[in-house]
Amino acid sequence: MSSEAVMETSKKQPVQKEIEASSEQKNIHSQDKNLSPIVTSTQLPAISNIEQFEPAKTKAIELSIPKTTELSISTSIDWIAFLGFAITAVIVIFTSRQTMKQSIEVIKSQEALSRDNAKENISLTKSELTASNRQAWINTLRNDLASFIAASNVIWDLHRVKDGRDQVLAELKKPEYAMGELFEWSIKYNSALQNAEQLSAKIKLLLNPNEDKSKILSNLLDETMQVVKNKKDPTSLAQKIIEVSQSILKKEWERVKNLT
């Protein structure tokens, strides 16, 4: 072999070793990726070039975390819609207050009207009651006066009847019959006298003792009773009683008309 051939062979050997070392390193890398057991230094083949050795790289584990959904909230204000809502609310509140105010005014006016009507009704009731009572008083006084005048005439008539019968009974000379007739007459007389006195007292109770006309009428009643007891005609006194009574009744009737 020539020297040139030896030199060429010596040049190829280092290159061949580098290629082999590179292939072994790739095998080691592939074993690391397959998670092979850790290889000690005794198991590694001889490597001529230590600087070309690279330590095994561990596989990086990536965790994939799903992204959360992002919510976008718009904080912008629709001023047109807001103003519309505000105006509507103000109108509703104002209308409600006006309606409430009007309702309160109506209620107050109705209460005032009711009070006025109640007062008017009470006033009318009092007036009507007073008028009714005065009218009843007038009717009672008129009836009692008429009954008193009639009762006084009955007493006067009884006296005249007795005077006429006394003469007849004396001529008959029958004392038993005369006693019977006198007893019957006494009963009638006492009843008529009692009735007249009762009517006189009732009339006086209906009169106002502080009024002049009432005082005059009361005196006429007493005078009439005294006249009939004395067997005198009460006709003139009865006429005076009628005149004074008409004046009193007219005055009371005017009061009743003013009340109604």
Results as ranks from 00 to 15, higher is better:
A5Y: 05
A86Y: 07
I19Y: 15
W185V: 03
L193I: 05
E211W: 12
L237W: 00
K202A: 13
Q135G: 07
H159S: 11
D163N: 10
Q110W: 06
P209R: 12
S74C: 08
R142W: 06
K11M: 15
A151F: 00
Q16D: 08
N49P: 03
E184L: 04
F85A: 13
N143D: 13
K12A: 07
K257M: 09
A112G: 04
E51S: 06
I47S: 06
N143Q: 14
A151P: 02
K11A: 14
E4T: 05
P209T: 11
T260L: 07
K174L: 02
S10Y: 07
Q43P: 02
A81S: 14
T9M: 13
V161A: 14
K250S: 12
Q194R: 05
P66E: 09
E171W: 03
T58A: 13
S64V: 12
E181S: 14
Y177L: 15
D157Y: 10
A146W: 02
I203G: 06
M1G: 05
P55T: 02
V168F: 00
M179P: 03
L158I: 10
L145N: 10
I50H: 05
L205C: 01
E4N: 07
A5Q: 09
S36Y: 09
K12E: 02
I149K: 11
A60P: 10
N143R: 14
I28E: 07
S10P: 01
A201V: 01
I91H: 09
E254P: 00
E70I: 13
